[in-house]
Design a protein around this nucleic acid. Structure first.
Lengths: 165, 165
DNA sequence: CGTAGATTGACAACCAGGTTGTCGATCAGA
DNA sequence: TCTGATCGACAACCTGGTTGTCAATCTACG
């Protein structure tokens, strides 16, 4: 009763993976908040990175996040409100509103990346760098098939990616 | 643009962990659906297990899931609708409605556990059993502190556990 | 040209899964 | 017996996603 989900090694592994993810994210967001970036969600970080890497319209962002353009639009207004992106009309295509990451946005991205990597380094120190590399290599291999599947669909929507716990 | 979230090894690790979890869950639920258990969510499996392990009232379930009793009540009606639990008034305490897992519920639990373990075995076959054991041991260690923290709060609510992705 | 079809971003409605607050019914202890 | 705690239900709300629809705009073809 005190130990959640024993009994199935498989389920336990799944929980462990989820727990690891949440552990990292909590850690990073806590530190991020105390460095002037409060209210940041993991999805904000990932969306901001996607924008910075070229997904500079709502529809494009939705595509690269494998999410509807409406959902992408919602995170854009959040990012805008937080001061991480700005939106301005495209001079050559009046339908588009071009996105660009602000200085504050870049600061958040840099700090987030550094914090994630810091957590990763702490893990590496605990279990050994080559062990952590091995762990990553394994996870990459183990999820490659599915990633490929999901990526192929591109704007795929019959995958229920939002069903995590 | 095609490769999501490069640039930060730490963020990549986090994504890898999340991807691993989702990969397992998707796999299991797909198979579960094709075996007569459609509409099952990960939360259903975990809640059902908690109920079976003794959390046989709504409030108790909420406690053992670290969630409000109202949220627990919602998953209970879902489980009831799916035929996995039944609810009947407690003869000795008229406030309580005692929960019990149905035969169908036990079947789902068994199949779910078996499928999770099957996925885990496939992973073990791919990366080696002792490597997988090592991976689990590492994740356990790496998340132990946080788990302990979270567990201590018990009905804690200042942790934003729902912030995954 | 001009028009038919795609595409873009906005809006509304909805759903799932959480939250809080409140409430009546019930139990339990002083 | 009364007072306080607990239980389950209900309502309202938030978040992050979905679909459907729409006017505006581009684009390619006749």
């Amino acid at each position: 009763m005190m130990c959640p989900m024993a009994r199935s090694p498989g389920a336990e592994l799944a929980l462990l993976l989820l727990g690891g993810f949440q552990s990292m994210v909590d850690e990073v967001h806590g530190e991020l908040a105390s460095r002037g970036h409060e209210g940041v969600r993991a999805s904000h970080e990932f969306a901001l990175r996607a924008i910075d890497e070229g997904a500079d319209t709502a529809t494009e962002l939705g595509r690269s996040l494998s999410v509807s353009k409406q959902a992408a639009a919602k995170v854009i207004v959040a990012l805008e409100r937080l001061g991480y992106v700005e939106r301005e009309p495209d001079p050559t295509d009046a339908r588009l509103k071009r996105l660009h990451v602000t200085a504050r946005g870049h600061d958040m991205m840099a700090q987030g990346a550094a914090l994630f990597t810091e957590v990763r380094n702490r893990w590496a120190a605990q279990i050994g760098a080559e062990q952590l590399d091995a762990l990553e290599a394994h996870l990459t291999r183990l999820t490659r098939n599915r990633s490929a599947r999901t990526k192929d669909l591109a704007a795929g929507l019959d995958e229920d990616l939002g069903n995590a716990v």
